[in-house]
């Protein structure tokens, strides 16, 4: 589903990604951990076609990032800690706007909007402007926005930041349902427990390279913490 080979990204003289290789098969939930400045967000931005790599190859769902940006954008959904929605528009207007940008027709769009509003518990706030929503509600709307066009890949950058337990549970339920439907998820997080709980593969990004990849089933919370700490200790040495 996602194949990355020799990915390099520089900002000025600073190499943020340094020959990174990564393979994420379809239907996988991958959690990526790493310290600040390791290149996690840059990696996600490249996968989302928001930044261009200096070298290396990236394919998403068979599309080449270098020349098929529009096709890649049509199969991915992105959720960040920022909701990326318009405060002046209502919840349903936001979803309709993004759905139409992704080419959904009127009939299919209305059904999809209703489905997302119901499944994410937003139906009773559908006609409220998104600027008056709570942080948790706005994040639910952000998830709905990312899912409105039925993407096959979800890219998540710290999606649980600032969410209360209820909103976090809604997000987890939605992500599990997406994965159960065959979707692929790449989630960046600093929350080791959450990353382990959700994922079936774990990757550690340090200094722009994948330092280690493991199956989530092969470790537990204590093992994961030990793994992370030993990689961080090596990184600081």
């Amino acid at each position: 589903m996602i194949e990355i080979k020799g990915l390099t990204k520089r900002y000025g003289n600073r190499k943020v990604l340094n020959g990174l290789d990564l393979s994420v098969p379809a239907g996988t939930f991958l959690s990526i951990f790493g310290p600040n400045g390791a290149g996690k967000t840059t990696l996600l931005k490249i996968l989302a076609t928001l930044a261009r790599p200096n070298s290396g190859t990236v394919t998403v769902d068979g599309w080449d990032l270098a020349k098929d940006g529009a096709e890649i954008r049509s199969v991915i959904g992105v959720v960040s800690h920022s909701p990326f929605v318009y405060g002046e528009l209502t919840v349903e207007e936001n979803l309709r706007f993004f759905g139409r940008l992704f080419g959904l027709g009127p009939a299919g769009l209305e059904a999809r909007v209703r489905e997302l509003l119901d499944s994410l518990g937003l139906a009773h706030r559908a006609r409220d402007r998104s600027e008056i929503l709570s942080r948790g509600m706005r994040q639910r709307l952000a998830i709905a926005r990312a899912l409105v066009h039925r993407p096959r890949v979800l890219l998540l950058d710290e999606p649980h930041v600032g969410l209360d337990p209820k909103a976090s549970a809604v997000l987890d339920r939605t992500l599990r349902s997406f994965k159960d439907g065959g979707g692929t998820v790449v989630m960046i997080t600093h929350d080791l427990a959450k990353g382990l709980e959700m994922a079936d593969r774990l990757a550690f990004l340090f200094r722009g390279r994948m330092a280690r990849e493991v199956e989530a089933a092969r470790t537990d919370a204590a093992g994961l913490r030990q793994m992370y700490d030993s990689l961080a200790a090596g990184d600081n040495a």
Partner: peptide
Amino acid sequence: QSLLLCPG
């Protein structure tokens, strides 16, 4: 960024 993420 949400506009940049659209396929158009």
